[in-house]
């Protein structure tokens, strides 16, 4: 059996709603109106041991709800969910002993205490033997470069430093399964790279299964062998990121540097089969579908009509592809 099995998971939240204004505030005192938000509307998937899966979707799509159910914090309304053969919310304590969780927007470290104090508390909470604890600690301190941070009170850490400590904290008990909920949110480029490298190595060397939710496409591209895209509580696409994006983004982009100034209208009239999306000075950006017009043909066309200084074919930027994908999936 797969390490994680989720079948037809459903969860609705009741949200009190009130229209703006004083009058409605008073009305709300007497009569509360609720709306049901269907956070998960029949989600199913399986994840095998050792996979590194990206879980994508716009804000409010149900990503965090899924993670919370998988980690035993939330109770679903309906559906099956088994993690390592356990039902998380029924055997919460045994379950959480084997998982690690990082919520990027929250902190599990004690704000006023040096980092090491939080680590030692976790050692006691997970009842680690001091030998095991020291071994793991040494390893994470080494790979996440925490040596200088251990004695610093958490409130004095920068966000990037704190996130490295959060990652370390979630791994002290050597979990088989790691949930990362937006671990790179708000981090600078260097910290992002450190976090990414670490997660990748952890997955490759220790075989830890990782589920990663993020809005950062670079995270996904760099890390995930497989992605699931969720929107409005349903899984809308799954598979390799390349395959998913290829379906949506068949088009490629050709950037041409022209040797002269032309108007948009003129260029458009001269280049059929490709769409001019941008003209910046002498640089023209065309989108084209390689199935309809082959790149050599397009390039031959353009160079027959214009003096060309330079050209470059690239895939469309991944962020644009994903937002287009969300659009196509109606989320």
């Amino acid at each position: 059996m797969a390490q994680i099995v989720v079948q037809d998971l459903r969860k609705a939240f009741k949200v009190a709603k009130r229209e703006a204004g004083l009058w409605n505030a008073f009305r709300g005192l007497v009569k509360r109106e609720y709306t049901h938000v269907q956070a998960l509307d029949g989600v199913s998937f399986e994840i095998e041991e050792g996979e590194l899966v990206g879980y994508l979707g716009p804000n409010g799509a149900g990503k965090s709800t899924t993670i919370k159910i998988l980690s035993g914090i939330l109770l679903p309304d309906e559906g099956i969910c088994q993690v390592m053969g356990r039902i998380p919310w029924q055997e919460r304590i045994d379950h959480v002993r084997e998982i690690g969780v990082v919520f990027g927007q929250r902190s599990q470290l004690w704000w006023d205490l040096p980092v090491i104090d939080s680590f030692e508390l976790l050692r006691d909470i997970y009842r680690l033997s001091s030998a095991d604890y020291r071994k793991t600690l040494e390893k994470v301190v080494d790979t996440l470069e925490l040596t200088d941070l251990l004695e610093v009170p958490v409130r004095q850490l920068s966000l990037g430093q704190r996130m490295r400590c959060e990652l370390a904290a979630s791994l002290l008990h050597n979990p088989k399964l790691l949930f990362l909920d937006e671990p790179t949110i708000g981090l600078d480029a260097v910290s992002k790279l450190v976090v990414r490298d670490f997660v990748k190595t952890l997955n490759e060397e220790q075989g830890t299964t990782v589920i990663l939710t993020t809005h950062d496409m670079d995270d996904i591209e760099a890390l995930c062998s497989r992605v699931m895209i969720i929107g409005r509580g349903k899984i809308l696409a799954r598979g390799k990121l390349k395959d998913i994006t290829r379906e949506v983004a068949r088009e490629r982009r050709l950037v041409v540097e022209l040797d002269g100034d032309y108007s948009k209208e003129y260029i458009r009239s001269q280049v059929p089969g490709a769409e001019l999306v941008k003209l910046e000075g002498k640089q023209a950006h065309f989108d084209f579908d390689p199935a309809r017009i082959s790149p050599p043909e397009l390039i031959a066309n353009i160079s027959a009509r214009f003096q060309v200084r330079d050209l470059l074919i690239e895939n469309q930027p991944i962020d644009e592809v994903i937002s287009r994908l969300y659009g196509e999936l109606h989320i």
Binding site: S71, G72, I73, Q108
Partner: peptide, 8 residues
């Protein structure tokens, strides 16, 4: 949420 992720 974090408190609930502990085996306590």
């Amino acid at each position: 949420a974090y408190e609930l992720c502990r085996p306590l």
